[in-house]
């Protein structure tokens, strides 16, 4: 078994930007004021042929790690839950976008200051 890291970096919410590798754009989907961002993967990731295979309930051969960076002293966060979804965008190619959803401790969609994300394809 092997894991190939296809994207990694830090999402900064104040500027809605991404620093790292494998992600070309960060946007806020229409209808969401906070708590939801859409990462567009680089064109050409692993030939862009199923770099992130689609699938919600099926095993899509992709795994992610999300870690919220706190702010202040000590570095605190109100984010209580984090989730990832791989969005089917191109038929027969796979997901080219990854959505991250964060909710605070009052069950309301909320932005962290920033978060780290790593995405692996498994073989």
């Amino acid at each position: 078994m092997s894991l190939e890291c296809i994207a990694q970096g830090v999402v900064t919410y104040s500027s809605l930007s991404f620093s790292g590798e494998g992600v070309s754009d960060v946007t806020r989907p229409a209808g969401f004021a906070a708590g939801v961002v859409l990462l567009t993967l680089d064109v050409g990731l692993i030939g862009n042929a199923g770099a992130v295979p689609p699938g919600i309930l099926s095993d899509s051969d992709v795994r992610s790690m999300i870690t919220v960076r706190g702010s202040g002293v000590p570095p605190a966060t109100t984010i209580a839950t984090k989730a990832v979804l791989y969005l089917t965008d191109v038929p027969f190619v796979g997901a080219t976008q990854v959505m991250i959803v964060t909710v605070d401790n009052t069950a309301v969609l909320a932005d962290p200051d920033s978060l780290e994300i790593a995405i692996w394809r498994v073989f």
């Binding site: 708590g35 839950t81 984090k82 979804l85 964060t102 909710v103 401790n105 069950a107």
Partner: peptide, 8 residues
């Protein structure tokens, strides 16, 4: 249905 989770 924003794709969140209740798992904290």
């Amino acid at each position: 249905t924003p794709g969140s989770t209740t798992i904290a």
